[in-house]
Nucleic acid binder design. Sequence first.
DNA 1: CCTGGCACTCTGCGCTTGTGAGTGCCAGCC
DNA 2: GGCTGGCACTCACAAGCGCAGAGTGCCAGG
Lengths: 338, 338
Amino acid sequence: MLSERRLQVLRAIVQDYVGTEEPVGSKALTERHSLGVSPATIRNDMAALEDEGYIAQPHTSAGRIPTDKGYRLFVDKLAGVKPMSPPERRAIQNFLDGAVDLDDVVARTVRLLAQLTRQVAVVQYPSLTRSTVRHVELLSLAPARVMLVLITDTGRVEQRMVDCPAPFGEASLADLRARLNSRVAGRRFTDVPTLVEDLPEAFDIEDRGTVSTVLSTLLETLVEENEERLMIGGTANLTRFGHDFPLTIRPVLEALEEQVVLLKLLGEAGDSGMTVRIGHENAYEGLNSTSVVSVGYGSGGEAVAKLGVVGPTRMDYPGTMGAVRAVARYVGQILAES
Amino acid sequence: MLSERRLQVLRAIVQDYVGTEEPVGSKALTERHSLGVSPATIRNDMAALEDEGYIAQPHTSAGRIPTDKGYRLFVDKLAGVKPMSPPERRAIQNFLDGAVDLDDVVARTVRLLAQLTRQVAVVQYPSLTRSTVRHVELLSLAPARVMLVLITDTGRVEQRMVDCPAPFGEASLADLRARLNSRVAGRRFTDVPTLVEDLPEAFDIEDRGTVSTVLSTLLETLVEENEERLMIGGTANLTRFGHDFPLTIRPVLEALEEQVVLLKLLGEAGDSGMTVRIGHENAYEGLNSTSVVSVGYGSGGEAVAKLGVVGPTRMDYPGTMGAVRAVARYVGQILAES
DNA sequence: CCTGGCACTCTGCGCTTGTGAGTGCCAGCC
DNA sequence: GGCTGGCACTCACAAGCGCAGAGTGCCAGG
């Protein structure tokens, strides 16, 4: 177990390193923090911290930098979440309030997060599977061609073309529309399959094929869109990384383009509360030198999707966590209102 | 006027420089291209080309590299568009054919373009203003709350909530829906305002307020969405730029995040045919060391939006132009089918 | 108008050296 | 037992130097 002072030393190292981006030595530490002991003592503490794996030296006879394990301890025990200041909160709210539709909400959220944290922001669109159906609309575009439009409670809209096996009258279409909506409107997406199971039986034999086709397209939409969408922004902030660019930045950009990777990343994060994944804690190799701070957001008490930021392991954790939490909270409010 | 051989020399310089990324000297030129003259002669030609501003030396006594003006001449006079090979064409078509909806078409196009050109790809969503209305749907969600859904011929869907000044019956709504569609379905977006101008007059006095509200929301949607959306991809390819990263890559990433800048960029490009903007020809400062190759695409003969790639001025112009043209062509086909 | 030759000018690389920050360890002090 | 000052040691990094190589411009001759 580490003594209180050694924890203080670790905290000081993390703070200084985050600020200066340079390995921090024992002398500098005593000068910048009033620890009440001499550099030599700090050196002993540092040696102990290094033995335990919390800090490391880039080269012999250089200062120390925190390891992933060191950051982990810092985040868990030594640092809180820095709340946003009232003016910042107002700015967030004002900025998000101007959104006109879901796309706009997501786009604004990404921009906001990227600006606040000066890092790369990732925002997942509200997930279909956890949402409920607001309305299903069917439009006849041609005698045997129907457009299916699905509207969710979060304002998301999906549409699909359906080629019917047989012509389908306007009256039957209206009938199907009415029956469909009375069954699924307001229900969760996951419940839809069982709710519509026996629907074809209510129709004349010649329409059943078409009804089945429409329904299976609807179910497909639910499943397919389960591969959810997301939006990223602030990639220019990557250039603030170390100056050892190409090697660092490349895999990160690649990871960001692979939405699958990102979705998995967000998915793995805990369902409630904020999750911080530091360096090698990220399963994806390209993100081994980055940290991901993520949190769920939602219109009610329940999370419908996640958002977060990706930045260097050497980041301002309290500030970043504060910004992420605040943004998630306000986005949830906006969604609840619309 | 430049002699034929000097043009050949310029072409050779561009090709070699694009290939090797290093300034090319007179000796190397004679070795790699059979120009039939000695290095000394080439030197004279180079001096002439430099006087005319087509090439430049990074430092005294280094090889030459093409200037923006040099690339311009190369693109205009010395190089054609390199057509895609049949297997490549098939691959493009196969890849795009798998798309399930408009978002997917755009997403796949971006990926494809980025992979083919190994550069940053930009694809604009089919523009609303140049599209036609396929259908307008009105849904009553609450007595005084209507959802407006606009579906375009390119498959794009926009929706808006409308808060009505007075409760609006299901019958009136159906009436409005029918009248609205009979007027605007199949018409161009730009024509809609005049087409619906006198519509409120056809309704009872108590409904007119609501009808006007709905219509003005519709018109707003048309205008607002005129600020069009786009998707970008392949930013990881930026890391293949020079090794003088931070300075080069940063402004480019920033430009790519500013959709406004990109839209302007695409907008400025000629409406028909392929446009190549080289280096300083780009109005936006951050893109002064990049070239943009763009072209319109559309479902019919007419362009509904544009797509293109952003890369270093030192790019393989014939290959890039070939890829951009081929992709645009196939995307147009896909859109026409759906 | 082309060519070969020649002197000149740079950049880039490898080498050496010096400096400074930082460490580890030890003996002494409280 | 824990803290402190002192001391020798290690390395990364910057500066200075010399050298090789690539490339140029120019000129005289074919």
